[in-house]
């Protein structure tokens, strides 16, 4: 089996005649039993994980807007990154 990443190749799109032909093809439905799977093994009932307590993430606090000429804002930002964020 191969799993591909986006950008591997040009996508191949179906041509109009082929789209028309595809409409006439039979779509086979297979139920779980025929696929050899028990209904308790799949879907929500089959999931070993239970989810609860849906909530919104904490809001990010409003940030600082730096103002001035590019030379000033760049210097301010570098200073903040060093002194406040301690990243430099």
């Amino acid at each position: 089996m191969i799993a591909a990443q986006k950008g591997l190749n040009e996508p191949r799109y179906a041509s109009l005649p082929n789209i028309m032909k595809a409409k006439k093809k039979e779509i086979k439905k297979i139920d779980l039993a025929a696929a050899g799977v028990e209904s308790g093994e799949v879907g929500e009932r089959g999931s070993k994980l239970k989810t609860k307590n849906y909530r919104l993430p904490p809001e990010r606090e409003a940030g600082k807007k730096l103002e001035g000429e590019p030379a000033e804002t760049a210097a301010q930002l570098a200073k903040l990154l060093r002194e406040e964020a301690k990243l430099i």
């Binding site: 990010r60 590019p70 570098a78």
Partner: peptide, 28 residues
């Protein structure tokens, strides 16, 4: 993007970014 930013600069990136690069290098 400014709603999630801790620090925001409303300006032309072509002016700010090269200057920021210099400042970061200086501090480093």
């Amino acid at each position: 993007i400014f709603q999630v930013a801790d620090y925001g600069i409303v300006d032309d990136l072509f002016k700010v970014v090269p200057l920021l690069t210099e400042e970061v290098k200086k501090l480093k």
